[in-house]
Design a protein around this nucleic acid. Structure first.
Lengths: 342, 342
DNA sequence: TGGCGCAATGAGATCGATCTCATTGCGCTT
DNA sequence: AAGCGCAATGAGATCGATCTCATTGCGCCA
């Protein structure tokens, strides 16, 4: 076995000295250091992190839980976090919850047993999460990602969903839209959807327009056009639709075009998340973006600060409205008589 | 500290007995078992996996390295693998290499130090990978994912890239196309691209058609239309283009439409990978799919077999041609005079 | 030349769980 | 009632690295 004991034996030194050859080489006589290094190489020695972790009572591992990696917004977030973590010397244990509370619980328990130094969680609903309630009783550093910090106990990283969706709504209003709807994935599963709808509602009301209830799609990734037909047709049908995420928006655009409608000619569509792909589509997706690279960096930085025992200031991530081709002026016949609000 | 020693103390038993309360409760008197469990609960005891891993000389962790999570094909693969691994009691350490050999090496070394039980790697180029060469000298179970098993030493999971692309090519030929091109990401970085191009070439030659060199795009995710203009225009321009991955195909479709061309009216486009999103676009993407769920399951199963010391039979994953709207008959003026090959 | 001080090294304990091997104790048999 | 056997439990070693504290040894100064 290529462990330090055998390296020490081969080099003719004690374990302590062998260990020092790696942790503080300057404290060894050059000749001693050389002997140890050579012995290590001869044996193919590779330090055992598990033993180091046990001894150090720290794993340099972060536990990350996202609902799904099928949605690029989480995959891209993970990509950014992985790079930031690696740069800081940390590894990631990655898990997916499918938005299922029972899995969320099992996963978190598992990661705590693994003694990760910190957790970065994206839960279905932060307000009613049993996992989070349990975690409050632990002292494991824990960061919510994308979840609003409603349970103020936890630090949280993400854009201001409320304001962001309000901005998107105002953008559509500024383009001249008056009848704007909003669709989302399964409602109960996401506190984000609620906040985003709230932002939409507020912007509509502020502009003196009628806000509509969130239209609930059966999945987060795919629209059921039939459910939308009632609000699309007719003289007072919607001229624009906001989606709670980009995948829904992309799917909606696809379905609309497939059914013979044009985007944004017949209907303007906006997404939310700003996945990379949206830029390359035709029409390109108008959406609300959070700068991805910064996102991962900030998330990891914040979590590491928590691990160090600091109390990082919650700075909301800036969102950016990315104007694409999927949102334009409303169809002429329905154009509002007054000039657009700017 | 909530460790077994303190649980044992509180319960008034030895460490061994306390441990047995969890590993083999049936060997304890019910009363003893109850006392230990109660003590554990009172102290908030949570078994330390790090200690278990050290003792057991097995971590129940798999190391996964993919080039990037920004490409949904890898994210979706990871999603499937995570579920399969979790079901088998394993956790995943996830890393991204950006196709950089130096990062690949650092990552693998890191994971080996972490004593993962097995590795699932997707490398840039399996034939010329320094990491793989090094790994051959280790005895860590290692599985290549997506990489062809050119270095026959390693087990490998993935579709038969050569045949799959040949199938896609034959599909276009059957649709009536005669002048078919192929584009890919940065060539040198991918053995897969080479195999896929080879499949294309073979199918073209077999049909008596002229195969063209792979046209190299500067990125894997975005086409530069200007580089394609020369081969698209004119009476003998291409009528169909194969892409080495779906993102390129999607980007190409977007750019074409933005430049006023229609797909598949002016140009048919096929992707490769079968990412979920492709179904929902308009036009929906014609592409070569590998069943995702099965993919992750097979990858994890194969890796676990390797870990158990078995020698799993390499069964290539079946690919499926998914016909979408992005590939159709060639434009009429250029239609081949002979009937289509079926 | 004796002793002081610092540099270099070694011995042993520690992190937490678990395995092996002993030992206790109880019931049952003859 | 003595002894056997099995069930239940305990003591100690182990996994691999590292930290603390002791100890060695050497150079240098008085």
């Amino acid at each position: 076995m290529a462990n330090l004991i055998n390296v020490a034996k081969l080099a003719g030194v004690s374990r302590a000295t062998a260990a020092r050859a790696f942790s503080s080489p300057e404290s060894l006589r050059p000749e001693t250091h050389r002997r140890v290094v050579e012995a290590a190489r001869a044996l193919g020695f590779r330090p055992n992190k598990v033993a180091q972790q046990l001894r150090a009572q720290a794993t340099l591992m972060l536990g990350v839980m996202v609902p799904s990696l099928d949605n690029p917004v989480f995959a891209e977030q993970l990509q950014a976090m992985e790079e930031a973590a690696r740069a800081a010397g940390y590894s990631l244990i990655v898990t997916t919850s499918s938005y299922e509370p029972s899995r969320e619980e099992a996963i978190v328990e598992e990661m705590l047993r693994q003694r990760v130094d910190g957790l970065a969680l994206t839960v279905a609903d932060a307000d009613h999460s049993a996992v989070l309630a349990k975690l409050r009783r632990e002292n494991t550093p824990c960061l919510l990602v994308h979840n609003p910090p409603a349970t103020s106990y936890f630090s949280s990283v993400g854009v201001d969903n409320h304001t962001a969706m309000a901005d998107a709504t105002r953008h559509l209003i500024a383009l001249g839209h008056r009848r704007i709807g909003m669709i989302g994935g399964p409602l109960l599963q996401s506190d984000r959807a609620r906040l985003r709808h709230e932002g939409y509602r507020e912007a509509m009301v502020a502009a003196g327009l009628t806000s509509l209830p969130l239209i609930e799609m059966p999945r987060h990734t795919q629209v059921a056009l039939s459910q939308l037909e009632p609000v699309l047709g007719g003289a007072d049908g919607l001229t624009a639709v906001l989606c709670t995420n980009d995948l829904l928006a992309i799917s909606l655009i696809g379905e609309l075009r497939r059914s013979g409608r044009s985007v944004p000619g017949d209907l303007s569509v906006m997404g939310f998340d700003g996945i990379e792909l949206g830029r390359h589509l035709y029409p390109s997706l108008s959406t609300v973006v959070q700068p991805r690279a910064e996102f991962g960096r900030v998330a990891v930085e914040t979590l590491l600060a928590l691990i160090r025992g600091e109390d990082p200031q919650p700075r909301p991530l800036p969102h950016v409205l990315r104007e694409g081709e999927s949102a334009g002026s409303p169809p002429a016949p329905y154009q509002a008589p007054e000039p657009s609000v700017s």
